[in-house]
């Protein structure tokens, strides 16, 4: 399989360097509560991890494969609900419930994806949205199982795993850090694998991929299932932290927010969506403190970024760096960043 047009990222493709960076990130995140012991910062970061996984996994579809899913939150919610329900049953441990949540969500994504990935462009977006609305209505209607609009009530128990007591806020935070970093590394590996490059080719030129004998539908389905599974881990983290699962997790606004995180951060860089997540969460956190008219502020900031920078924040920085490098060494050929506009 021939790799598609190579896009240079901040991270080189070497596994070793990825791992080194991951370890460094792990150390930094673990050190944060030691340096700044305020619980609010830990809380903020746990939300960042949960929504970051949602946005990062969605970008595997949007940025990597060119599949604009409007219904990604369905898998986020399915992770939270499967995990929460299993834990409330009191029969399984946290790791088992997590694995079941991921596995169950993967099956759900497989069934829905098998129908959706055959559709193109905006029609793919709409049908994923339709399935998400369907799943949301199941959660709201099936009151006996899910608690309906009131959500899973009564808290999610956190029995100790191998002597780790997750009821302790610091241990919970540490666990979330490890899970988050492992998931990001996993997504990075998929994106840098031959499979990942095949997906880029499908995004940039599906006809060519088809001629080369790539089973486009199967490849798309593969990444759809993987992205769904990764989103479910985000859901598990959130459920574990807020000690509940709510139908709002599966509402279209949650999917919309994930898309905005990607757009605000940028989708050219692997970690771009995390920049967007950080931006949106930080804005949300501070603006809500100052004013109840946060919509007015957030809307204006989005307009400024879109109309001023004309791209996501990380993409802007990336292009700026590329420009500078190009000006310094005019002889070196610079790969033109492909700005793709999707016809609707």
């Amino acid at each position: 399989m021939r790799p598609g047009p190579l896009r240079s990222g901040l991270l080189p493709s070497g596994l070793l360097r990825d791992l080194a960076l991951a370890l460094a990130a792990l150390a930094v995140f673990l050190a944060v509560p030691v340096v700044f012991p305020q619980p609010a910062l830990r809380d903020f970061l746990i939300y960042f991890f949960a929504y970051g996984l949602l946005a990062m996994s969605l970008n595997l579809l949007v940025g990597l494969t060119g599949l604009v899913s409007f219904g990604h939150a369905a898998y986020f919610a399915s992770g939270a609900y499967v995990f929460g329900l299993l834990m409330q049953s009191g029969r399984v441990s946290i790791p088992v419930a997590t694995l079941a949540a991921v596995g169950g969500t993967a099956i759900l994504a497989l069934v829905i994806g098998a129908i959706c990935v055959r559709l193109k462009e905006i029609y793919f977006s709409f049908i994923t949205l339709a399935f998400q609305m369907f799943i949301h209505s199941i959660i709201v209607t099936w009151v006996g199982l899910t608690g309906g609009d009131q959500g899973l009530r009564g808290g999610i128990p956190r029995p100790p795993i191998l002597g780790l007591d997750l009821n302790d806020a610091r241990t919970l935070y540490g666990t979330c850090v490890v899970v988050f970093v492992v998931c990001i590394v996993a997504m990075r590996q998929v994106s840098q694998s031959p499979f990942g490059y095949t997906l880029r080719m499908i995004r940039d030129n599906p006809a060519r991929a088809n001629f080369l004998g790539v089973n486009v539908v199967l490849m798309k389905l593969g990444i759809f299932v993987f992205a769904g599974a990764m989103a479910s881990i985000g859901g598990v983290l959130l459920a574990l932290f807020v000690s509940g699962a709510y139908p709002e997790f599966a509402f279209w606004t949650t999917s919309g927010e994930a898309i905005f995180m990607i757009m605000l951060g940028g989708m050219k860089l692997f970690l771009g969506p995390l920049v967007g997540t950080l931006l949106l969460q930080t804005l949300n956190h501070f603006v809500t403190i100052y004013t109840e008219y946060h919509g007015l502020v957030l809307g204006s900031v989005i307009l400024l970024i879109v109309l001023g920078l004309r791209r996501g924040l990380a993409d802007y920085l990336y292009d700026w760096l590329q420009d500078r490098r190009a000006r310094r060494a005019p002889s070196a050929p610079v790969p033109e960043p492909v700005v793709k506009s999707r016809p609707v």
């Binding site: 305020q38 619980p39 809380d43 939300y47 807020v242 709510y246 709002e248 809500t288």
Partner: peptide, 16 residues
């Protein structure tokens, strides 16, 4: 009106 946001905001109000 989002429950997860309600949880976060409540924790912040108490902790922060």
């Amino acid at each position: 009106g989002r429950p997860d946001e309600a949880a976060k905001v409540t924790r912040d109000l108490i902790n922060n």
